[in-house]
């Protein structure tokens, strides 16, 4: 398990941009202005269905209150498991009697609206990435991402695949990586306890990071997702 490891050459936020992050995005046809998205890839009828607002960073509450909230968040992690690969199988032992994450206040949640931890279990193909982006954006913040398995970190055994993205942190902000192929349930639980530490320390602000660097994330996503047939930001 490594959290934004210095030795792998990843900076503190876990990101090295493939597109230089100059603030001036070259490709701007999906941005109407600073607050509005165009949803240009959708049909006119579909544009009515979806929201066109950009995400905005949410301010944390006043110090001690935020600390209290963070304590509640850390002790009530509701998991949205995205079983993209073999790592998804690791969540099942976690909820059964042997490991029993419910004693830590965690429970699997079937809908992104109610979950607070997004658990990506394995390699991410382009088709999956679309669903990941949609599910991630539908979650209500503060939201955290735990990526399990080596495939989610650097492509793993699919490093030379034509259809697998190698670094999820270029497309959505990732808080904790759990290494292993596949990691044992203990390793996954260690990852969750690391996430807890981060939340308690107030460092797990992936939602705000996503909102601040929205242009950069979107550009990366649009670079690999060629048939973008979904709204630019899913509420």
């Amino acid at each position: 398990m490594s959290y934004m490891d210095k030795t792998t050459g990843i900076p503190e936020q876990g990101i090295t941009p493939p597109i230089p992050d100059t603030g001036e995005m070259p490709d701007r046809e999906w941005r109407k202005d600073d607050k509005t998205l165009t949803n240009a890839e959708l049909t006119l009828e579909e544009q009515d269905w979806f929201c066109d607002a950009r995400p905005t960073p949410a301010k944390p509450a006043w110090g001690p209150v935020e600390k209290f909230y963070n304590w509640a968040r850390a002790n009530s992690l509701w998991i949205l498991a995205f079983g993209t690969g073999c790592g998804a199988i690791e969540l099942r032992p976690l909820v059964t009697a042997r490991y029993d994450i419910s004693r830590l206040g965690m429970q699997p949640r079937p809908t992104p609206r109610q979950a607070s931890v997004f658990m990506i279990g394995g390699y991410v193909s382009i088709k999956t990435l679309k669903r990941i982006v949609r599910s991630y954006e539908q979650m209500q913040g503060p939201k955290f991402v735990v990526a399990v398995c080596s495939c989610a970190i650097n492509g793993g055994m699919y490093w030379d695949s034509y259809n697998t993205v190698k670094r999820i942190d270029q497309y959505i902000p990732v808080d904790v990586y759990v290494t292993g192929c596949m990691p044992r349930p203990e390793a996954v639980m260690a990852g969750f306890s690391k996430l807890k530490e981060l939340i308690l320390a107030g460092k797990a602000e992936g939602q705000n990071l996503y909102a601040e660097k929205f242009d950069w994330y979107k550009a990366n996503q649009k670079q690999v997702i060629k048939d973008w047939n979904m709204p630019d930001y899913n509420w």
Binding site: G155, W159, Y162, T164, Q170
Partner: peptide, 25 residues
Amino acid sequence: GPPVMRRDFDTAKYSLETYDHRPRD
């Protein structure tokens, strides 16, 4: 791209060109 299972399609080359790889120490 081209049909992917054809043997003249170099998947490693395509992957290196298209996707960003995590630097390795």
